[in-house]
Amino acid sequence: MTSTSSSAWARVQDSPWFWLLPAGLFLLVFYTWPLLDVVRLSFTNASLVAPDYDYTFDSYRRVLRDPSTLRTLKVTFLFAGGSVILKLVLGMALALAIDAGVKRGLHGIVLVRTSVLAAWVIPGVVVGVLWKILLSTSSHGLLNYWIQAAFGNSVGFLTDPDIALSTAILANVWRGVAFTMILLYAGLQRIPPELYEAARVDGAGAIARFRFVTLPTLAPVIFIALVLITIGGINTFDLIMALTEGGPARATEVVGLRVYQQVFQFMNLGRGAALAVLLLAVNLLMTLIYLRLLRINRKTD
């Protein structure tokens, strides 16, 4: 009796489902179900304040007809694209600098790494508030206080519609560049030093070594970083919420912020959900494009 029950238990243990179950349940309850519910809600006219709702395509129709949707998407792409480019370039520069510093045994490298990382662990809302204090045009804006003292006028970092988006991008890059740096730095550690030595003997200068050794070896890591920071950029909400609340004149209104406004300011659950599904579609599309690029890149290898 004991032996049959223990062999049944062994069979359960041998099945992969048994081991996948806890994580699977977790994902189902906290990810899949809310996701499906958002999709379901996007086909309703549900509101936060009225309990009854009907199923309809009206939410999508209105979202797609609304001219501000297109503008929001444009702002989101500019924000994400600017963040991606700057994060990659600066993250690469930081990773190379820290790598070179460590290899030469320079002092203070740990300090540099820790300070860059510190920005990363600060929550987005706090980053938004910090940069707001730093850049505000009002009397408590730190940077404008100095600009005022030096030049006699102030710069509307957060109030000028032409500048505000760039400011938001900079704040986002300041916060997230550490993540790119860590990914690329880890990638750099995997490049055998002999490759650089062989390249030096072959006559490659610093730029040629970067182009012919570092970049190609690092390409898969760069692609992963690209996917992750693109998705992160497209989904940004907290930082902009705290920094500009989408202003001035909706110049920094990204899709994530608009979803929030639809649901929690206009109480329009259906339309907010439709926007959220749109955001999901954009994310999926970008990921598919990157995956395709990665595959092409692998093939040429």
């Binding site: 055998p192 002999e194 490759l195 030595e197 062989a198 390249a199 003997v201 012919f212 050794v213 190609p216 070896t217 390409a219 290898d301």
Partner: peptide, 11 residues
């Protein structure tokens, strides 16, 4: 120079 682990450019 010829290196112990060959040091060929993998790509």
């Amino acid at each position: 120079m010829v290196f112990q682990n060959y040091a060929l450019y993998p790509h």
